[in-house]
Design a protein around this nucleic acid. Structure first.
Lengths: 349, 349
DNA sequence: ATGAAAGCGCTAACAG
DNA sequence: CTGTTAGCGCTTTCAT
């Protein structure tokens, strides 16, 4: 009698023996395949239960053909950015619902690390990959796409290749944010951007510019700065803005982490939001109301992006030949109190 | 001629053929095994390079013995909590340095999900597991430990079993925090705890109580509340405190996410920190200075916890028989401005 | 120091 | 409907 607590793992073979059938049959009931007699099926299921058997995913993965390995890769640029945490959660939930696993990798904004992970991921025989590439000319990811490896990009696309893509309308999100700032009375607005090489950084800049133009305001190059999408960079760039002879009255910050950096600089100088300086950030956070004042921000549905990306990848696995698709989700401006509704009155006076 | 861009993956067998040796030999140079003639070695290495070969980790994993599979599991309760993100980063960096991979799972405070992941993790043939269990009587984890499966717990231990453990001195961390509150003049301090079933929630309560007692203050049961370690719970419990006929003048919050919830309630009522209500939180965050006022908090070295846990797990894999060890790291009180240094003066007057 | 051969646990033809 | 057989790509005795 085999006891549950015994060390040696029970295999499909054990189940077959116990049920008095071949391993192939067991495999068939496991994979819910066509036409197994009810009696055999129940017999096998009984054996599985009695032996507390669970299939070895590794062995299975080795044997099956491409796209059936039940493992996805997920490669994100920065796990400390809550936006990507949301994406991760979205992917995870979808993957969990099916019987897949997801190998989550954080390359921490480090190109070398991204490359290493990309290789590792392949060695692990993933079926497909969801990735927010380091930048849009990411050689390795691009060549994978060219080789028809199943990939869906999130948050940012790739140059020169057609790839499945889930993004938000960065342009419009930024536009709305800056427009709001203008609505409440601001005329000099600084843009604290992320890495220039990341498409979203430039799209958000574009939205910013368009909002100014549409409102008949001048676009001053001094008021547009790019950094490296990190906290420190948000701090530094904000300081530069505040140190200007004629500083902006409002800031539009390019992502979560930059926003936090900007806030740190602002608070450290004892400046009041929104009276001394207003701020609207790209990326909302579940604790935006915990900031003081509550942050007005562009909500990007990270969780939904993750879900849709996973969905899209599953679709591609089922139909490898189909044309790449692009999903653009909407952002939503969460108006709270960091932009100075009060300014509006002043402007009207 | 095989071109790099071809679909079919190159295998160890291809390398062997190309180098004119057996597969066993290739395997040996791959695994840096003893005594291979220099000439053969270079020949194989050349073939590997020419074919751009990289080993299939899945096949390897299937074949090798326990503890050599180069895959670890990491199971955390809440990936939205920045503390666990730090732990993840610590583990990831250690694992990355060796040639391991880590399967990161977030059970999102859901016991059922934790169970499912535990099973999946085993089906994936992990060598060992780093886990912050749902609570200290987590049946599945406990039974894995009993079966001598390599496990190291982080953040929280398990009841009734000896297990490798990396924690901080929660007791002392909480003590220091509350002591600080008392130092600056507070006498009525509320504790906003997490899930009662999580050891850290109670330890932090213990530290809180001890600080009160050591300072000759009464411990009032009304001032101690437990919730479920989530944001909403932080909001609700804080509201309850503020609604008391005689509310506390300060709050000690049990974790990151609870702190954020508390802050939301406080701000929403237009209360000023620290004059109306002071707050010190367990768990520091890289953006604590972005809060207004900057948050005084108990820094828990999450990244270091992750690193040490991974180290410990590697050690156990090398020496499965050794006695379980426990590492207790120190916390550090980061005094910023949410506790009211100003209160001290009042108290002295 | 190297090769031959077995096999990890599973699935996928191919028979029947 | 079910069994037999052959591997997936690798490591590991056991020989030599």
């Amino acid at each position: 009698m085999r006891k549950k607590s015994e060390k040696s793992k029970v295999s499909l073979r054990d189940v077959a023996t116990r049920a008095g059938v071949s391993t192939a049959t067991v495999s068939r009931v496991l994979n819910k395949q066509n036409y197994i007699s009810h009696s055999v099926k129940t017999r096998v299921e009984k054996a599985i239960k009695e032996l507390d058997y669970s299939p070895n995913r590794v062995a299975r993965r080795l044997r099956v053909r491409d796209g059936e390995r039940r493992l996805l890769g997920l490669l994100v640029p920065d796990i400390q950015n809550p936006f990507y945490v949301d994406v991760i959660r979205g992917v995870e939930d979808m993957v969990f619902a099916r019987d897949y696993a997801v190998y989550i990798c954080n390359f921490a904004q480090n190109y070398e690390k991204e490359k290493t992970y990309l290789n590792k991921l392949q060695s692990e025989s993933i079926d497909g990959l969801i990735v927010a590439p380091y930048h849009e000319e990411d050689k390795m990811v691009i060549s994978l796409v060219r080789e028809k490896f199943p990939i869906v990009c999130v948050d940012r696309g790739l140059k020169g290749v057609d790839v499945d893509l889930v993004v938000v309308d960065n342009d419009k999100g930024a536009y709305n944010a800056v427009n709001h700032l203008i609505d409440v009375g601001h005329r000099r607005i600084g843009y604290v951007g992320g890495l220039y090489s990341i498409p979203t950084s430039r799209k958000r800049r574009d939205g910013y510019v368009k909002a100014l133009v549409d409102n008949g305001l001048d676009v001053e190059e001094d008021l547009i700065k790019f950094g490296d999408s990190k906290h420190e960079s948000g701090m530094r760039l904000t300081a530069e803005f505040l140190d200007m002879p004629r500083p902006p009255t409002a800031l539009f910050t390019g992502n979560n982490v930059i926003t936090l950096g900007a806030l740190e600089t602002i608070h450290s100088r004892g400046l009041a939001i929104p009276t001394d300086i207003a701020i609207v950030g790209f990326d909302d956070m579940f604790w935006a109301n915990s900031l003081n004042p509550p942050l007005t921000a562009v909500l990007q549905p990270g969780y939904e992006i993750g879900r849709q990306a996973a969905d899209m990848l599953f679709e591609r696995l089922e139909e490898p030949g189909r044309e790449p698709r692009k999903i653009v989700l909407n952002t939503r401006l969460m108006v709270r109190q960091s932009c100075g509704a009060g300014m509006l009155k002043e402007a009207e006076e």
